[in-house]
Write a protein that binds this DNA or RNA. Structure first.
Lengths: 251, 251
DNA sequence: CAGTGGTCTAGACCACATC
DNA sequence: ATGTGGTCTAGACCACTGG
């Protein structure tokens, strides 16, 4: 069960994989299988080194990479924690890139309009790697910044993973959507791909965002992934950008 | 001249800085002062370790961070190179996030419309950390994807850093804008902040992009920085997003 | 104080590129 | 064969946290 050491490979170097990558894989599997839950600490580097029969430095390098991917969080003196969408604001803003233009940090309020059940269209099925016609849940909501409606959000989820998701359940929950998914359904969002466009507001959206139909809106399409690059959420946000904007860092 | 080792600090831990951070700082300064140029190799880890009187592992960690920031590029067996905006497509797409929606990778062609000299407005001065009224150069260009005009770009630069920038000089140059800045003016873009909005096309832009006035466009404002977080470029791109979009990865 | 992660070292060996 | 970066180890010590 322990990772095969590179030296043990007989042939010189066909598909060589470093030890720390193998450890990283094992850690990811433990996370995926729920051995440690979001917010909890994982065993110390020394313990993990003993478990996997490698040096502490090798475990360290594996954890370093997972920390760089925001899957684990290191805290000196305390331990290494499983990242969570719950808790403090810093981690919330990881997936929320819409800010006030003036730079003031402000958390939006979510207002759920509707929960609808339906079947995956061809497009949805492709994005979420489902079969066309499979059951999906669609959430429609509006995000208010300082009481003003700014984002019209449509969130599509595979029903299989979100059984028992109801409007009441969401309304009762305090915290972000991803926090809810994580705590109530065990679905943890690890990364996401986004595509941005400018579009004109249609009548329905214009009414909710209290703008004129035809107003340019920022369209943010997102596919969010859980462990193993499995897509588990399709989202389209339409955002008024008079006082707000989408921020991004290139490096 | 060598980095002060942490142990040498007398008091216990007021403002403790790890050795590898100090090495990183020294490497950054060498880059900034032009000791090594984009595309060139820097000395080997062993040589640098000898120069700074630290172990190879410490140099390694410093270089690792600079590589993670895309300032250096490691190539096993060959050496460590100063990152450049010239050369292959991979590094070009680091700062170019507008793609065809269908996923086909395609490089745009730049068509320079105008080079204008002027003075920094209050807003520009703030963004570029200049004094209002200081001289700036403004470039107006259009980017064509497959011959279709897609992006209307307005690029504002401090004249001090780009003396002798003329339309002819740009038209003659083959390669990206940042490649030109790097090779002709020694200004290297390290990172950038972007803000995205949706706006309506005005008459001027609509004509260049061959869309109806009022068409929603994606506005991408960018402030690009060189070493030491010095802002050296302000850019606003207006993009037609009928067949193109801005892609982003969250993690 | 003990336990955690963080730094630094020195040395061995591997993979890759080049001559 | 040589030199480069990449991996792995073992051990020492430092910084931070909490009992």
């Amino acid at each position: 069960m322990p990772a095969m050491k590179p030296g043990a490979v007989s042939s010189p170097s066909p598909s060589f994989q470093p030890l720390y990558q193998q450890i990283k894989e094992l850690l990811t599997q433990s996370l995926q299988h729920g051995e440690w839950h979001p917010g909890e600490t994982i065993p110390s580097e020394i313990d993990l080194a003993a478990r996997f029969q490698v040096s502490q430095g090798t475990v360290r390098k594996a954890i370093d990479e997972l920390a760089a991917e925001n899957i684990l969080v290191r805290r000196q003196g305390k331990g290494t924690f499983v990242a969570t969408h719950t808790e403090e604001t810093a981690s919330i803003f990881r997936f929320l890139r819409i800010r006030r233009c003036d730079g003031r940090e402000e958390m939006p309020e979510s207002r759920l309009l509707e929960v609808r059940r339906g079947k995956a269209t061809a497009e949805v099925a492709r994005a979420l790697q489902m079969k066309p016609g499979e059951a999906v849940v669609v959430l429609i909501r509006v995000l208010d910044y300082s009481g003003e409606p700014i984002i019209y959000d449509e969130i599509t989820l595979p029903s299989v993973l979100f059984k028992g998701l109801t409007k009441a359940k969401i309304d009762d929950y305090l915290g972000s959507m991803y926090s809810l998914f994580e705590t109530q359904f065990g679905v943890r969002m690890i990364r996401a791909d986004e595509r941005l466009r400018a579009i004109a507001a249609d009548a329905e959206v214009a009414r909710e965002l209290r703008v004129a139909p035809g107003t340019p809106l920022l369209s943010v399409e997102r596919i969010a992934f859980t462990y193993g690059d499995r897509p588990v959420e399709l989202r389209r946000g339409l955002c008024t950008t008079r006082q707000h904007c989408y921020v991004n860092q290139l490096s």
